[in-house]
Write a protein that binds this DNA or RNA. Structure first.
Lengths: 98, 98
DNA sequence: TTTGTATTTAGCTAAATATCAAAATAGAGT
DNA sequence: ACTCTATTTTGATATTTAGCTAAATACAAA
């Protein structure tokens, strides 16, 4: 749980999670969306991975990251419970179905 | 929001919040519940205070801390919303009414 | 005003974190 | 076997963090 909150304490990493909520994305595509170097982004991915919040699969040269929604949910549920809140998990977002 | 998650990333600080959910407590009483020095606890209180999660009032020699539930709620609501969850806030816990 | 109790600040160390540029690795394609 | 592209690792530096002891502050009480 500490690892999850630590991971969430950085705005870049929170934004990465939000982006991955829409769809899986490659490390490069994610990195391109932020004003920091690719090695720095790689380190952020590592923090998220170690917290269990994202997972990766290799696809040709690329590394595709995807959100592990269940881990995020469990951490939030666990915490919410300690404060007597109820959290109802969500439907997946529509990937701009226009 | 980053400050809140940063504050929550330490188990001692999370436990402090849980204890303050039951009732306001003095710095000393809180400190006595953890196996670290009082200055260390004071630093934890400062982190929680800067995140807005607790507030203090002076009472004679003591400093009484209390939870700012609304700040915690708002941070959680904000985050939950970004992931499409619903969070319903809670009743205050019974302070062992036996 | 001296003493005692409660809490914080100061000053320190060790470990962790965030960032970068440069080098290394992994795969595909030529 | 090269060469390109994508990503991570390495090595360096700066900052932050968690912890400690000792000193300072705040207030009450004697």
């Amino acid at each position: 749980m500490s690892l999850v909150f630590k991971a969430l304490s950085d705005p870049t990493r929170r934004r990465v999670l939000e982006m991955l909520r829409e769809r899986p994305m490659s490390a490069g595509d994610l990195a391109a969306a932020f004003p920091v170097s690719k090695p720095t982004m790689s380190a952020h991915f590592a923090v998220l991975r170690e917290a269990g919040l994202i997972a990766s699969e290799k696809q040709a040269q690329s590394v595709i990251y995807h959100l592990q929604m269940s881990v995020l949910e469990e951490a939030m549920l666990g915490f919410a419970q300690a404060f007597g809140w109820q959290l109802q998990p969500a439907a997946k977002p529509e990937s701009s179905t226009d």
